[in-house]
Simulated assay, not measured.
Amino acid sequence: MGYKTILVHVDEAPHAPARVLMAAELALQHGAHVIGVALTGVSRFLYHNEMVDDDDPNLAQHLDVLRERARGALADFAPQLRALGLHSFEERVLDDEPGAGLALVARHADLAIVGQAVPDQRGTGPSAFPAEVLTESGCPVLVVPHTARPRGSISVTPSGIASPGAPAPGRHVLIAWNASKEAARAVREALPLLARAEQVTLAIVDADLRPAAFGDTPGEDVLAWLGRHGIEADVVMSQTPRQGLLKRPGDVGEALLALAEERGGDLIVLGAYGHSRFRETLLGGVTRTVLETMTVPVLMAH
């Protein structure tokens, strides 16, 4: 099974074209339909609660400006996909906040592609929406670093493998395995990408802290599980520095990012802890660290 419906968030950010290019490559590989969504930022709850009066000329003018900006963000979406040879796609302009609007559409998708928060805006308002999409949609989310830029053009072989140098991730996948149900869910959602990967690494950090969960040979059952899908993987064990008098473990998120860089990983698969009321309690510490400092795309499931 592959991804048959791919949602991509389109806005005015410099790395938005890279997201669209990534969605196109994955769609070509999996024979998928792509939905490009731009949002005005006006919460749908204002309409539901009748707090917005479309007859107010000042408000109507403001809404027109917001909708025009959203349509402008989508201006290159269809031409870009057609030029890449993709013909199954649609575009939508929604009156909603980014997180809430994308989460609703993503409930009917196999994969949602969004951008990393802009560094100087993390944790407040729209910048936190990747967490909201993840926790509210039930859909795996592929987060693209804000440093990503589209490069080159996509070429796909008859077998559906993209040419080297294309920006979509998945040639060397690093799985962050902590033996949790979230990690298991992330691996299941990543199977279509793992099946196409040239190399898969199962990264296990601080296994000694949860011996009952990992078992006598950490990663052994995961390797067997992946093997039945025809996916070969290797295991890398590491331990964070133990700090202070209580010998507390170090930052696992930093350890995962360092390992991905060291081994040339171009995609991290991560099970994310979190809560539905993400504005009050954002995602767990490891997930937050990875989202804030990532330099490669991260596929997350919750």
Rank of each mutant, 00 (worst) to 15 (best):
Y3V: 00
K4R: 14
I6P: 01
I6R: 01
V10K: 00
D11L: 08
E12W: 12
E12R: 12
A13W: 08
A13C: 12
P14D: 10
P14M: 08
H15I: 02
A16N: 07
L21Y: 11
M22G: 11
A23M: 07
Q29T: 14
Q29G: 11
H30E: 09
G31W: 09
G31V: 06
A32T: 02
H33P: 07
I35K: 09
I35E: 12
V37S: 02
L39D: 06
G41Q: 01
V42A: 01
V42T: 12
S43V: 11
R44W: 04
R44H: 11
R44Y: 10
F45S: 15
L46M: 12
L46R: 13
Y47A: 09
H48A: 15
N49L: 15
N49K: 14
V52Y: 02
D56N: 11
P57N: 02
P57Q: 00
N58R: 10
N58S: 10
L59K: 04
A60I: 06
Q61D: 12
Q61M: 12
H62S: 14
L63S: 05
R67L: 01
E68N: 05
R69W: 10
R71E: 10
R71G: 06
R71Y: 04
G72K: 06
A73P: 00
L74W: 02
L74C: 04
L74E: 00
A75K: 13
A75N: 10
F77G: 03
A78D: 01
A78I: 04
A78W: 01
A78C: 04
P79N: 03
P79F: 03
P79I: 07
P79R: 02
L81Y: 01
A83S: 13
L84W: 09
G85Y: 03
G85P: 05
S88T: 13
F89W: 05
R92N: 13
R92Q: 14
R92A: 13
V93D: 02
D95P: 02
G99F: 05
G99M: 01
G101R: 03
L102E: 09
V105S: 06
H108L: 14
H108G: 10
H108A: 14
H108F: 15
A109D: 11
D110L: 14
D110P: 09
L111D: 04
